[in-house]
């Protein structure tokens, strides 16, 4: 649905040159929620703004729903943008318009007539749970309500894609969750493809099907979360299940086991103890529900050098678990 190919963008301001995006490629499948995560200054905003060409890349192509946006004339680009809704970190609502007026903005731009605009606005406000605030001004709303208006505005023109630039970063945790749930609902009920950027792993954990990690303007990892979890050395997986730094235990073996899907509910420790007579200690564990599946990571300590534990480790691996030996 969204295909970003070899996109680069360099900013020159004054004497400083910033390579905000370097040969970035990204594929977002139809109907999925794709999260791009990265630290401040990593190039997240530049990336998502390149998708609807608010920021025109220096090189590379962007294709959304079959239209190669980077090749379109200004008029054709405007038309294509109507299929791409966008929500912003700071909401960007017009202060002089009511909630309904804000939602109708995109429809006015397309030239939908008054009656139909009104009907559509109420329909969409109903969906985001703000029908009773139609006549309020943005200044009279809470942050979460403002973002709902932002989402309603983005959805009013019935786009196929929703772009979200840190939509929840200005909100408290509880409101963040409710907004994320709304995005998830929109995704499932309306079949909207969502590309969101965030610096919070929570967001990825809660609603994303796929994710990419961006660092210094480069995508260092991307994929479906279920497969990332079972990829050895995946940084995203480590971020999803942070177990902290490994303890220094000379003479012992510390392993991280990542479970997902079927292996999640297997009695691993009991099995190790029974089969190998091992004294297993649990150093840490994280269990999450990701994409509706239980997944998690457990850090275990086994007595003896890794060399002497190859038997049990290989056994676990053969059962489909991802086993990483910490400190190796």
């Amino acid at each position: 649905m969204i295909s970003v190919q070899h996109v680069s963008k360099t900013f020159r301001s004054g004497g400083t040159v910033t390579a905000a995006l370097q040969d970035v490629s990204l594929e977002v499948a139809e109907g999925e929620i794709f999260g791009v995560i990265g630290q401040s200054g990593a190039g997240k905003s530049t990336l998502i703004r390149a998708v609807n060409l608010l920021e025109r890349p220096d090189s590379g192509t962007v294709t959304v729903d079959g239209d190669e946006l980077t090749a379109l004339s200004p008029a054709a680009l405007r038309a294509a943008r109507r299929k791409i809704g966008m929500v912003f970190q700071h909401f960007n609502l017009l202060a002089g318009r009511t909630v309904r007026g804000n939602v109708e903005l995109g429809l006015e731009i397309i030239g939908v007539d008054g009656d139909q605009r009104r009907r559509r606005a109420f329909e969409i406000l109903d969906l985001v749970g703000l029908a009773d605030k139609a006549g309020s001004y943005p200044a009279e709303l809470s942050g979460g309500q403002k973002q709902r208006v932002g989402i309603a505005r983005a959805l009013a023109g019935e786009p196929k894609v929703l772009l979200s630039d840190e939509a929840t970063s200005a909100l408290d945790p509880e409101t963040t969750r409710s907004i994320l749930d709304l995005v998830k609902t929109i995704n499932t009920d309306l079949g909207l493809t969502v590309l969101l950027i965030t610096h919070e792993m929570e967001v990825v954990k809660r609603i994303c099907d796929s994710a990419a990690l961006i660092e210094g303007g480069r995508i260092v990892e991307q994929g479906r979360i279920v497969s990332l979890i079972s990829t050895a050395g995946s940084r995203l997986a480590h971020e999803l299940f942070p177990l902290g730094d490994a303890p220094r235990t000379p003479g012992d073996t510390v392993i991280d086991i990542t479970f997902s899907g079927g292996s999640a509910d297997r009695p691993v420790i009991a099995q190790l103890a029974r089969t190998y007579g091992l004294d297993v200690s649990i150093l840490g564990a994280v269990i999450e529900t990701i994409g509706g599946n239980q997944a998690g990571r457990t850090r275990l300590q086994l007595p003896g050098q890794p060399r002497s534990n190859t038997g049990p480790i290989e056994d676990l691996r053969s059962q489909g678990m991802l086993v990483e030996i910490v400190g190796e």
Binding site: R78, A79, N92, A154
Partner: peptide, 15 residues
């Protein structure tokens, strides 16, 4: 006027 508002309108396909 916040440039974010201009971007919001642009993202909706405004001329």
């Amino acid at each position: 006027v916040d440039t974010g508002l201009i971007e919001a309108a642009e993202s909706l396909g405004a001329t």
